[in-house]
Design a protein around this nucleic acid. Structure first.
Lengths: 137, 137
DNA sequence: TATAAAATCTATCTACTTGGTAGGGTTTTG
DNA sequence: CAAAACCCTACCAAGTAGATAGATTTTATA
């Protein structure tokens, strides 16, 4: 399941992608447009900025805008930024790998191989879902 | 990510599937064989019993055994039993459907369609991972 | 240069979930 | 009849999710 943070992030990006080029959106504007609690959205936008999906302009008439093409922002990236690994266990993850604590006898746990298949399939699917693909319904 | 419960359930089923036909495994035996806290495993085995994956025999020389073929127990089923929906949002789920609380303007949320694609792909992959497929390495 | 509007930072809060433990009670069977 | 197993209920500690609050910095412009 996606966290609310990840869900809100997607909706915020969707909102930004739907604006005219060069338009700068205030937080409050995004919050109301996408129905997201404003203070919560503030944190999310900062995370998105750290992740280099958006950038911001401070001060009066400031706000947020996309700095990555809507065709290049994938669900996989947003998932990783907010919810971490795509794999079902850390030992099957590429970006968030950690060994299992409870696999004593074998070097690889019995589940790892099967879970890596899932991970690859899911990742492939998630990389195909972009902000742009979500817009055209 | 899988919960520990789901992970332990898979390992316990794997352990049971590796025993000789007609063998009955005591909880303590599974716990030690698969490295799972015994008292925690008790609860998990009860859940698996309610889910009709295993059955049990009480009394001296009792224990647990599979009642479903290892070819028919899929990762998807175990995920649903312990961790719930496979979809990334409730509104994209078939078995655990719930409408979004924060989608005001549209009847369907903007993310739903894309997430249902992911759900279908993931489900298909998860249905291909069976206990039997995990055994043969 | 004062001011208003906006992002940014830091801290806090509450409720829920997870992972696990404790301690029995009940049933079966050698 | 007691050992061995299943079965049940409650509890707990730690962490996380989902926010909210308030102060500070930055910037445009009147």
């Amino acid at each position: 399941m996606l966290s609310h943070k990840a869900k809100y992030a997607l909706k915020a990006l969707l909102y930004l992608a739907e604006q005219d080029e060069n338009h700068i959106s205030k937080t409050i504007e995004i919050a109301e447009g996408a129905n997201i609690p404003k203070k919560f959205l503030e944190q999310i936008l900062l995370d998105l900025k750290r992740g280099r999906f958006v950038s911001s302009k401070q001060g009066k008439f400031g706000g947020y805008y996309l700095i990555k093409s809507k065709n290049d922002i994938t669900l996989a990236e947003i998932h990783r930024l907010f919810d971490g690994a795509i794999a079902l266990l850390p030992c099957a993850s590429l970006n968030f790998y950690e060994p299992c604590s409870d696999c004593k006898t074998e070097e690889e746990c019995s589940l790892r191989h099967g879970l890596m298949i899932i991970r690859n399939e899911t990742l492939k699917a998630m990389q195909n879902i972009t902000i742009a693909s979500l817009i055209k319904k």
